[in-house]
Design a protein around this nucleic acid. Sequence first.
RNA 1: GCUGCUGUAGCUCAGUGGUAGAGCGCGUCCUUGGUAAGGACGAGGUCAUGGGUUCAACCCCCAUCAGCAGCUCCA
Length: 642
Amino acid sequence: MNWENSTLDMGRSETFRTARDLSGPARGTTSGRHERMAKSSKLSKDDWLYRLRHSLSHIMAQAVLEIRPGARLGFGPPVENGFYYDFLLDEPVSDAEFLDLEQRMRRIIAENQKFERALRPVAESLCFLEDRRQPLKVEYAQDLARRGESSLSFYRNGPFEDMCEGPHLESTGEVPENCFRLDSVAGAYWRGSEKNAMLSRIYGLAFPSAADLQRFLERRDLAKERDHRKLGQLLGIFTFDDDVGRGLPLWLPNGTTVRDELEALAREVEFRGGYQRVTTPHITKGGLYRLSGHLSHYKDSMFPPMHISDEDEDEDYYLKPMNCPHHHKIYASRPRSYRELPLRLAEFGVVYRYERSGQCAGLLRVRGMCQNDSHIYLANEQVKEEVKRVLELHRVYYEMFRLKDYWIRLSLRAPDSEKYVGQADLWELSEKVVREVLQELAIPFVEELGEAAFYGPKIDFQMQTLLGREETAATTQLDFVMAERFGLEFTDRDGQKRRPYIIHRAPLGTHERFLSYLLEHLNGAFPTWLAPVHVRILPVSEKFLGYAARLRAELVQDLFRAELDEGNERLNKKVLEAVTHKIPNLFVVGGRDQEGGTVSWRRYCRGNEQKVVRFEDARGILRTLRAGRVMDNFPDVAVPGW
RNA sequence: GCUGCUGUAGCUCAGUGGUAGAGCGCGUCCUUGGUAAGGACGAGGUCAUGGGUUCAACCCCCAUCAGCAGCUCCA
């Protein structure tokens, strides 16, 4: 890509998307953010399905009160795929009781209880809720009253009555047969704050018909097969070990191969983009993080210090949670001229963050990770152009891999929050610059307050994982604070010393998260250039082992990751084994091939399609696939010679 | 960190208060084969770890570690 002449016409690109474009793969449950997204784009209150789900949540609450009469009710809304209800319970409900609860729900449905709405004045509502010993509802009613509501809405069906906005079905009998199922029970804080009590949330699935429910369950089971944790094990990508520690993946040979290839790609892309590579240590004295502000603003996410105390030294060392301070020190290692700017320092930097124990999940959230990191030092007037180039970099990767399940977030500070450093006017300026860049490029984005880094606003690429979680896949941050803190400067054209701006950017995020994303996105089927094994050779029988071994030796000489299946098995079995492991290219060789100097080439992405090709030609095609990083895992991508 | 569930062979899982099983995988042999599982035999487990109850614990209880789902967090 020619950076100087790049037109940066991302507005016309299909690459960048908004939250609304997310199609939403099968999901069992939704996180808070997804609920926000779902609310903005999914069911409206008038939808029958909305009312069905909402009504089922009341029906479930009625059933729960039958087996736990002392249960205190929280909230019970409809959500994507179904509904939930939160309860404060004396005794926990376990999923072993779901069958019983479902039976009670079916009975309530069979009783065809009418849903009836009543409006009560606030004072009467509070009395009613106190009578029913529903302290959580009382608290909420008081809130509503403070907000100026004069009367509150209640819904009653049979013996169950709940303060609720509605709307609901006409009666419980409207619920189609077998259209719901209780799904899971999980903890949830009252009103979403961990300072509050933990309630028991029971999730249910509900769809317009039994068939829709079945379809959903099947889709969800299928999705589980694509889970990167499952694929990672199947394909020998990574593993975890209790003795090593939570959130600390061990990368197996196949996984390391994929990482190496990704790094090679990023190295080339960044070399062309004018980046220089640097390398920095994993541990660092505390002073650096006092200077950067990490110890006052990021300490909770850092591993505790290693204290060194002997006659020479009395010092705390920390595992680095970010690479930026080190890169700033490299910038500061000698005087800088405006001629050097933008100065782009890049590193596959390994950082360690102390994630709370419940947060780790496969490769998605880890405690040790490798960032595709870079810090760009530049003059004020260069900022906009450089942010555009950085976004262009994202486009290279996202288009190449056809990544689509994400949305772009402009992460701003919450103005009244204590957690940010720097002056307010500089914040406003930086936020304005970043917003303008996105607007000028016509990239769709969503602004969110309180999501900024402590030193500046961010452009985050928020990805959606297979099972519905959302994580930041890539980030670009504009930093006007650290140069000040580190005393960074450059000599400008006029001989004056000036502060550089800093852009932090990681288009591939971390290797861990990016690969988890890629594994799920590609369903483990890597293109030839990226695959742990480029080609596996399957001799039809032992008689052709010699021929097969010669081909393999030649491919290995050519630096192909070529394997030979020497197993004493029938060809059927060997094909099954290779296909199960999603190996992109199989060369089947037997007598006919040995005579003709050919291979029977079977490609994973094209099903059973295969071709007899002279070995020399096959090798040439493989070279083309590798050198051009052809995405031959996508069936519509043309492969030369095929 | 919080709530709930789970931890048995490399993997997926069954099982019982009297020290364990299947399928796949792995090894050896037979078979010498042309595109999604040929056959036989065999090796593999301190039943996550540490306590406790019991004549006896893989099973019951407690704690710890780890995983899963969710909540919260992700500055």
